[in-house]
Amino acid sequence: MFAYIIRRVLATIPVMAVVALFVFSLLYIAPGDPAAVIAGDQATPADVERIRESLGLDRPYLVRFGEWVWNILNGDMGVSIFTNLPVTTMIKQRIEPTLSLMVLTLILAVSIAVPMGVVAAWKHGTWIDRCVMGFAVLGFSVPVFVVGYVLAYIFALELDWLPVQGYTAFKEGFFPWLENLVLPAIALGGVYIALIARITRATMLEVLQQDYIRTARAKGVGQRSILFLHALKNAAVPIVTVIGIGMALLIGGAVVTESVFAIPGLGRLTVDAILRRDYPVIQGVVLLFSFVYVLVNLLIDVLYTLFDPRIRY
Protein backbone atom coordinates (compact mmCIF):
# COMPACT_ATOMS: atom_id res chain seq x y z
CA MET A 1 0.00 0.00 0.00
CA PHE A 2 2.79 2.41 0.86
CA ALA A 3 4.40 1.59 -2.45
CA TYR A 4 1.14 2.61 -4.10
CA ILE A 5 0.94 5.85 -2.15
CA ILE A 6 4.50 6.75 -3.06
CA ARG A 7 3.87 5.91 -6.70
CA ARG A 8 0.69 8.01 -6.64
CA VAL A 9 2.54 10.96 -5.11
CA LEU A 10 5.32 10.69 -7.67
CA ALA A 11 2.76 10.53 -10.49
CA THR A 12 1.55 14.02 -9.65
CA ILE A 13 4.96 15.51 -10.36
CA PRO A 14 4.70 15.17 -14.16
CA VAL A 15 1.13 16.49 -14.00
CA MET A 16 2.26 19.57 -12.11
CA ALA A 17 5.18 19.98 -14.50
CA VAL A 18 2.77 19.94 -17.44
CA VAL A 19 0.54 22.49 -15.70
CA ALA A 20 3.53 24.77 -15.09
CA LEU A 21 4.80 24.32 -18.65
CA PHE A 22 1.37 25.03 -20.07
CA VAL A 23 0.67 28.11 -17.97
CA PHE A 24 4.12 29.43 -18.78
CA SER A 25 3.92 28.64 -22.49
CA LEU A 26 0.63 30.48 -22.96
CA LEU A 27 2.67 33.67 -23.21
CA TYR A 28 4.46 32.23 -26.22
CA ILE A 29 1.56 30.36 -27.82
CA ALA A 30 -0.78 33.36 -27.75
CA PRO A 31 -1.32 34.82 -31.21
CA GLY A 32 0.22 38.20 -31.86
CA ASP A 33 2.56 39.98 -29.48
CA PRO A 34 1.42 39.38 -25.87
CA ALA A 35 3.56 42.27 -24.66
CA ALA A 36 1.62 44.62 -26.93
CA VAL A 37 -1.74 43.15 -25.86
CA ILE A 38 -0.84 43.45 -22.17
CA ALA A 39 0.44 47.00 -22.59
CA GLY A 40 -2.91 48.03 -24.05
CA ASP A 41 -3.90 50.29 -26.91
CA GLN A 42 -2.48 53.55 -25.57
CA ALA A 43 0.96 52.15 -24.83
CA THR A 44 4.11 53.71 -26.23
CA PRO A 45 6.76 51.43 -27.77
CA ALA A 46 8.82 52.01 -24.62
CA ASP A 47 6.00 50.64 -22.46
CA VAL A 48 5.75 47.56 -24.63
CA GLU A 49 9.50 47.10 -24.39
CA ARG A 50 9.42 47.44 -20.59
CA ILE A 51 6.67 44.79 -20.31
CA ARG A 52 8.48 42.50 -22.72
CA GLU A 53 11.53 42.74 -20.53
CA SER A 54 9.67 42.23 -17.26
CA LEU A 55 7.94 39.14 -18.67
CA GLY A 56 11.29 37.93 -19.95
CA LEU A 57 9.97 37.64 -23.50
CA ASP A 58 13.26 39.06 -24.80
CA ARG A 59 15.21 36.03 -23.61
CA PRO A 60 15.21 32.44 -24.98
CA TYR A 61 12.20 30.32 -24.07
CA LEU A 62 13.99 27.48 -22.29
CA VAL A 63 16.27 29.75 -20.26
CA ARG A 64 13.28 31.77 -19.15
CA PHE A 65 11.26 28.65 -18.28
CA GLY A 66 14.11 27.26 -16.18
CA GLU A 67 14.43 30.55 -14.30
CA TRP A 68 10.68 30.76 -13.79
CA VAL A 69 10.37 27.23 -12.38
CA TRP A 70 13.41 27.79 -10.14
CA ASN A 71 11.86 30.98 -8.81
CA ILE A 72 8.51 29.31 -8.14
CA LEU A 73 10.23 26.50 -6.26
CA ASN A 74 11.77 29.24 -4.14
CA GLY A 75 8.40 30.85 -3.54
CA ASP A 76 8.77 33.70 -6.02
CA MET A 77 5.97 33.99 -8.59
CA GLY A 78 7.20 37.19 -10.18
CA VAL A 79 6.10 40.78 -9.83
CA SER A 80 2.78 42.33 -10.77
CA ILE A 81 3.02 44.61 -13.79
CA PHE A 82 0.46 46.98 -12.35
CA THR A 83 1.27 47.30 -8.64
CA ASN A 84 4.92 46.19 -8.74
CA LEU A 85 4.23 44.04 -5.67
CA PRO A 86 5.38 40.42 -5.59
CA VAL A 87 2.55 38.13 -6.78
CA THR A 88 2.95 35.94 -3.70
CA THR A 89 2.32 38.93 -1.41
CA MET A 90 -0.81 39.85 -3.34
CA ILE A 91 -2.07 36.28 -3.16
CA LYS A 92 -1.39 36.07 0.58
CA GLN A 93 -3.41 39.24 1.18
CA ARG A 94 -6.40 37.82 -0.68
CA ILE A 95 -6.38 34.17 0.26
CA GLU A 96 -8.49 34.23 3.43
CA PRO A 97 -11.88 35.20 1.95
CA THR A 98 -11.52 32.70 -0.89
CA LEU A 99 -10.48 29.91 1.43
CA SER A 100 -13.40 30.74 3.78
CA LEU A 101 -15.86 30.78 0.91
CA MET A 102 -14.67 27.50 -0.53
CA VAL A 103 -14.52 25.64 2.78
CA LEU A 104 -17.98 26.84 3.76
CA THR A 105 -19.37 25.93 0.34
CA LEU A 106 -17.77 22.51 0.54
CA ILE A 107 -19.28 21.79 3.97
CA LEU A 108 -22.66 23.18 2.99
CA ALA A 109 -22.78 21.38 -0.35
CA VAL A 110 -21.74 17.99 0.97
CA SER A 111 -24.10 18.13 3.92
CA ILE A 112 -27.01 19.02 1.65
CA ALA A 113 -26.20 16.99 -1.44
CA VAL A 114 -25.36 13.62 0.09
CA PRO A 115 -28.60 13.24 2.10
CA MET A 116 -30.50 14.50 -0.96
CA GLY A 117 -28.97 11.81 -3.15
CA VAL A 118 -29.51 9.12 -0.54
CA VAL A 119 -33.18 9.98 -0.07
CA ALA A 120 -33.70 10.16 -3.84
CA ALA A 121 -32.24 6.67 -4.22
CA TRP A 122 -34.33 5.35 -1.32
CA LYS A 123 -37.53 6.85 -2.72
CA HIS A 124 -36.55 5.88 -6.24
CA GLY A 125 -39.24 6.66 -8.79
CA THR A 126 -41.39 8.77 -6.47
CA TRP A 127 -42.02 12.48 -6.64
CA ILE A 128 -39.21 13.09 -4.12
CA ASP A 129 -36.79 11.43 -6.51
CA ARG A 130 -38.12 13.46 -9.41
CA CYS A 131 -37.78 16.68 -7.41
CA VAL A 132 -34.15 15.94 -6.60
CA MET A 133 -33.37 15.09 -10.21
CA GLY A 134 -35.20 18.18 -11.41
CA PHE A 135 -33.21 20.27 -8.99
CA ALA A 136 -30.02 18.67 -10.30
CA VAL A 137 -30.83 19.64 -13.89
CA LEU A 138 -31.64 23.18 -12.77
CA GLY A 139 -28.43 23.34 -10.76
CA PHE A 140 -26.45 22.52 -13.89
CA SER A 141 -28.35 25.03 -15.99
CA VAL A 142 -28.57 28.19 -13.92
CA PRO A 143 -25.17 29.90 -13.83
CA VAL A 144 -23.54 30.85 -10.52
CA PHE A 145 -23.99 34.58 -10.92
CA VAL A 146 -27.67 34.27 -11.76
CA VAL A 147 -28.28 32.27 -8.58
CA GLY A 148 -26.18 34.84 -6.73
CA TYR A 149 -28.23 37.80 -7.93
CA VAL A 150 -31.56 36.09 -7.30
CA LEU A 151 -30.53 35.13 -3.75
CA ALA A 152 -29.12 38.56 -3.01
CA TYR A 153 -32.27 40.19 -4.34
CA ILE A 154 -34.64 38.05 -2.27
CA PHE A 155 -32.75 37.65 1.01
CA ALA A 156 -30.72 40.84 1.16
CA LEU A 157 -32.73 43.49 -0.69
CA GLU A 158 -36.34 42.42 -0.24
CA LEU A 159 -36.29 40.56 3.09
CA ASP A 160 -33.22 42.33 4.48
CA TRP A 161 -32.10 39.26 6.43
CA LEU A 162 -28.50 39.19 5.30
CA PRO A 163 -25.95 41.73 4.07
CA VAL A 164 -26.00 42.34 0.32
CA GLN A 165 -22.29 42.30 -0.32
CA GLY A 166 -18.90 42.41 1.31
CA TYR A 167 -16.79 40.30 3.59
CA THR A 168 -15.93 40.34 7.29
CA ALA A 169 -12.71 38.69 8.37
CA PHE A 170 -12.97 35.57 10.48
CA LYS A 171 -11.10 37.12 13.37
CA GLU A 172 -13.84 39.72 13.80
CA GLY A 173 -16.24 37.09 14.92
CA PHE A 174 -17.82 33.92 13.61
CA PHE A 175 -21.33 35.22 13.02
CA PRO A 176 -20.49 38.37 11.05
CA TRP A 177 -18.19 36.17 8.98
CA LEU A 178 -20.90 33.58 8.41
CA GLU A 179 -23.56 36.20 7.68
CA ASN A 180 -21.58 37.58 4.79
CA LEU A 181 -20.71 34.20 3.35
CA VAL A 182 -24.01 32.32 3.51
CA LEU A 183 -25.51 33.67 0.28
CA PRO A 184 -22.28 33.39 -1.75
CA ALA A 185 -21.77 29.85 -0.48
CA ILE A 186 -25.30 28.79 -1.47
CA ALA A 187 -24.92 30.42 -4.89
CA LEU A 188 -21.54 28.83 -5.47
CA GLY A 189 -22.73 25.49 -4.12
CA GLY A 190 -25.62 25.11 -6.62
CA VAL A 191 -23.78 23.26 -9.38
CA TYR A 192 -21.71 21.37 -6.88
CA ILE A 193 -24.79 20.17 -4.98
CA ALA A 194 -26.40 19.09 -8.25
CA LEU A 195 -23.31 17.12 -9.23
CA ILE A 196 -22.82 15.38 -5.88
CA ALA A 197 -26.54 14.63 -5.42
CA ARG A 198 -26.70 13.03 -8.85
CA ILE A 199 -23.68 10.81 -8.34
CA THR A 200 -24.81 9.89 -4.79
CA ARG A 201 -28.19 8.83 -6.10
CA ALA A 202 -26.75 6.78 -8.96
CA THR A 203 -24.22 5.00 -6.76
CA MET A 204 -26.71 4.38 -3.98
CA LEU A 205 -29.19 2.86 -6.44
CA GLU A 206 -26.53 0.38 -7.45
CA VAL A 207 -25.43 -0.43 -3.91
CA LEU A 208 -28.99 -0.84 -2.63
CA GLN A 209 -29.52 -3.69 -5.09
CA GLN A 210 -26.72 -5.76 -3.64
CA ASP A 211 -27.23 -8.93 -1.65
CA TYR A 212 -25.87 -7.72 1.63
CA ILE A 213 -28.49 -4.99 1.75
CA ARG A 214 -31.20 -7.61 1.38
CA THR A 215 -29.51 -9.59 4.15
CA ALA A 216 -29.50 -6.54 6.38
CA ARG A 217 -33.20 -5.97 5.67
CA ALA A 218 -33.94 -9.60 6.43
CA LYS A 219 -32.09 -9.30 9.74
CA GLY A 220 -34.36 -6.41 10.60
CA VAL A 221 -31.87 -3.57 10.42
CA GLY A 222 -33.65 -0.22 10.44
CA GLN A 223 -34.07 1.74 7.22
CA ARG A 224 -31.95 4.65 8.37
CA SER A 225 -29.04 2.52 9.39
CA ILE A 226 -29.24 0.52 6.15
CA LEU A 227 -29.08 3.71 4.13
CA PHE A 228 -26.48 5.67 6.04
CA LEU A 229 -24.35 2.95 7.61
CA HIS A 230 -24.50 -0.05 5.33
CA ALA A 231 -25.06 1.44 1.91
CA LEU A 232 -23.50 4.88 2.06
CA LYS A 233 -20.18 3.50 3.28
CA ASN A 234 -19.91 1.33 0.21
CA ALA A 235 -21.03 4.10 -2.09
CA ALA A 236 -18.42 6.45 -0.67
CA VAL A 237 -15.65 6.03 -3.22
CA PRO A 238 -17.44 7.45 -6.30
CA ILE A 239 -19.02 10.16 -4.17
CA VAL A 240 -15.72 11.31 -2.69
CA THR A 241 -14.12 11.13 -6.14
CA VAL A 242 -16.74 13.45 -7.58
CA ILE A 243 -16.36 15.80 -4.60
CA GLY A 244 -12.68 16.06 -5.54
CA ILE A 245 -13.23 16.44 -9.27
CA GLY A 246 -16.01 18.95 -8.68
CA MET A 247 -13.52 21.22 -6.93
CA ALA A 248 -12.75 22.55 -10.42
CA LEU A 249 -16.30 23.89 -10.61
CA LEU A 250 -15.91 25.42 -7.17
CA ILE A 251 -12.67 27.17 -8.10
CA GLY A 252 -14.03 28.52 -11.38
CA GLY A 253 -17.27 29.57 -9.71
CA ALA A 254 -15.46 31.34 -6.86
CA VAL A 255 -14.02 33.85 -9.32
CA VAL A 256 -17.52 34.86 -10.39
CA THR A 257 -19.20 34.63 -6.99
CA GLU A 258 -16.62 36.94 -5.48
CA SER A 259 -17.30 39.60 -8.05
CA VAL A 260 -21.08 39.33 -7.60
CA PHE A 261 -20.85 39.66 -3.81
CA ALA A 262 -17.85 42.02 -3.77
CA ILE A 263 -15.70 39.64 -1.73
CA PRO A 264 -12.06 40.77 -1.78
CA GLY A 265 -10.56 37.34 -2.47
CA LEU A 266 -8.44 35.66 -5.12
CA GLY A 267 -11.31 35.70 -7.60
CA ARG A 268 -11.60 39.45 -7.27
CA LEU A 269 -7.82 39.66 -7.67
CA THR A 270 -8.09 37.64 -10.88
CA VAL A 271 -10.87 39.81 -12.28
CA ASP A 272 -8.94 42.99 -11.48
CA ALA A 273 -5.85 41.44 -13.06
CA ILE A 274 -7.80 40.66 -16.24
CA LEU A 275 -9.05 44.22 -16.55
CA ARG A 276 -5.49 45.51 -16.13
CA ARG A 277 -4.03 42.66 -18.18
CA ASP A 278 -1.70 41.89 -15.30
CA TYR A 279 -0.52 38.54 -16.62
CA PRO A 280 1.96 37.57 -13.85
CA VAL A 281 -0.89 37.77 -11.32
CA ILE A 282 -3.20 35.66 -13.51
CA GLN A 283 -0.40 33.17 -14.03
CA GLY A 284 0.18 32.96 -10.28
CA VAL A 285 -3.48 32.49 -9.40
CA VAL A 286 -4.04 29.87 -12.12
CA LEU A 287 -0.97 27.99 -11.02
CA LEU A 288 -1.93 28.11 -7.36
CA PHE A 289 -5.49 26.93 -7.96
CA SER A 290 -4.35 24.15 -10.28
CA PHE A 291 -1.81 22.87 -7.76
CA VAL A 292 -4.40 22.96 -4.98
CA TYR A 293 -6.77 21.04 -7.26
CA VAL A 294 -4.14 18.40 -8.05
CA LEU A 295 -3.18 18.07 -4.38
CA VAL A 296 -6.77 17.72 -3.19
CA ASN A 297 -7.36 14.94 -5.68
CA LEU A 298 -4.07 13.30 -4.69
CA LEU A 299 -5.14 13.41 -1.06
CA ILE A 300 -8.49 11.81 -1.91
CA ASP A 301 -6.80 9.02 -3.87
CA VAL A 302 -4.46 8.30 -1.00
CA LEU A 303 -7.29 8.36 1.54
CA TYR A 304 -9.14 5.65 -0.39
CA THR A 305 -6.39 3.16 0.19
CA LEU A 306 -6.52 3.91 3.89
CA PHE A 307 -10.28 3.71 4.26
CA ASP A 308 -11.34 1.18 1.67
CA PRO A 309 -9.61 -2.17 2.13
CA ARG A 310 -10.99 -3.33 -1.24
CA ILE A 311 -8.62 -1.00 -3.04
CA ARG A 312 -5.25 -2.63 -3.44
CA TYR A 313 -2.88 -1.65 -6.14
Partner: peptide, 19 residues
Protein backbone atom coordinates in the same frame (compact mmCIF):
# COMPACT_ATOMS: atom_id res chain seq x y z
CA UNK B 1 -3.92 15.29 -17.44
CA UNK B 2 -2.03 18.52 -16.94
CA UNK B 3 -4.57 20.55 -18.88
CA UNK B 4 -7.43 18.93 -16.99
CA UNK B 5 -5.83 19.99 -13.72
CA UNK B 6 -6.38 23.63 -14.63
CA UNK B 7 -10.01 24.52 -13.83
CA UNK B 8 -11.60 25.20 -17.26
CA UNK B 9 -12.79 28.70 -16.46
CA UNK B 10 -9.36 29.73 -15.21
CA UNK B 11 -7.72 28.26 -18.29
CA UNK B 12 -10.08 30.24 -20.49
CA UNK B 13 -9.40 33.37 -18.41
CA UNK B 14 -5.64 32.94 -18.76
CA UNK B 15 -6.00 32.50 -22.52
CA UNK B 16 -8.28 35.51 -22.86
CA UNK B 17 -5.91 37.71 -20.87
CA UNK B 18 -3.33 37.26 -23.62
CA UNK B 19 -5.53 37.96 -26.61
Amino acid sequence: DGMMSIPPILLAIALMALT
